[in-house]
Amino acid sequence: MKIVIYIYHGLTMLDAIGPYEVLRNIPNAEVLFVAEKKGDIIADSKFVHLNARFEIEEINEADILVIPGSTITFMREIKNVSVMNWIRKINKTTKWTTSVCSGSIILAATGLLNGLEATSHWKPMGLLKKFGAIPKSERFVDQGKYLTAAGVSAGIDMALYLSNKIVGETKTKAIQLFIEYDPSPIYNSGNYSRAEKEVIENAEMILLEEAKKEPKLFQQIKRTTPKPKEYVQHGV
């Protein structure tokens, strides 16, 4: 089973690595990290790199396509005609086309989610409407061959759900145990609907500081939207 994870500069690392850790354990899985151009891909933190051994021109098919999100550079990806066309082409061959976090905005920008429900990170959720998708605040959303996951860590849940479709309950439980995925956070603030106002404001400041790590793109967005609505809260 060929699993293609599309990576790009500024991606959020766990968006790609979370699903990878689950899906690589499916029997006969072949996982490829693919970028527009092969080489080192720098994460949004600027601390970690991933190496893309393949570029999009070399990959014409996949059983599963995973599109990770990012703090801000997903806005650049949706304007990249080559990438948009490649996703549409690969989608014709996939059994499942998936996304994590703001990766759903990239997927929606291709038009493939038009009229379908989808989720994303809570901050850019409303952008799904712009591209014809129907925002839904869920951990992950199943729309047939399209699976979209909410922010960052939700990619693990989505990948386990997909694994269950492919190899069934016992094997998927074994994968979950292998990676010891048994979340028990010290706070119950991981969902926008439960988080206090002060917590949300602090989270927004973290996002803002992360976005500033891409100064050219950040300034471009500020110029085109006086009050940055590229980051709109929870479907507003």
Score class of each variant (00 low, 15 high):
232 V>D: 11
206 I>V: 15
64 I>H: 01
7 I>L: 09
72 I>S: 14
196 E>R: 12
106 I>C: 08
16 A>D: 07
131 F>S: 00
232 V>Q: 12
199 V>Y: 13
209 E>A: 09
33 F>H: 11
76 R>C: 02
138 E>D: 12
134 I>H: 07
11 L>A: 03
196 E>K: 14
90 I>K: 02
156 I>D: 03
87 I>T: 00
65 L>Q: 02
109 A>L: 08
139 R>K: 15
94 T>G: 09
78 I>D: 01
134 I>F: 09
157 D>P: 02
99 S>G: 07
127 L>P: 00
47 F>D: 10
206 I>N: 12
28 N>R: 14
64 I>L: 14
226 P>H: 13
23 L>G: 04
18 G>F: 04
13 M>A: 12
71 T>S: 14
97 T>K: 09
194 R>G: 14
91 N>R: 04
80 N>E: 13
128 L>N: 00
56 I>K: 03
98 T>R: 06
177 L>D: 13
79 K>M: 08
103 G>A: 08
152 V>E: 04
116 L>V: 08
71 T>D: 12
141 V>R: 03
204 E>R: 14
21 E>M: 10
109 A>F: 09
230 E>S: 02
188 N>Q: 15
183 P>K: 12
68 P>H: 07
214 E>R: 00
57 E>T: 13
105 I>M: 11
109 A>H: 11
32 L>A: 05
221 I>C: 13
214 E>V: 01
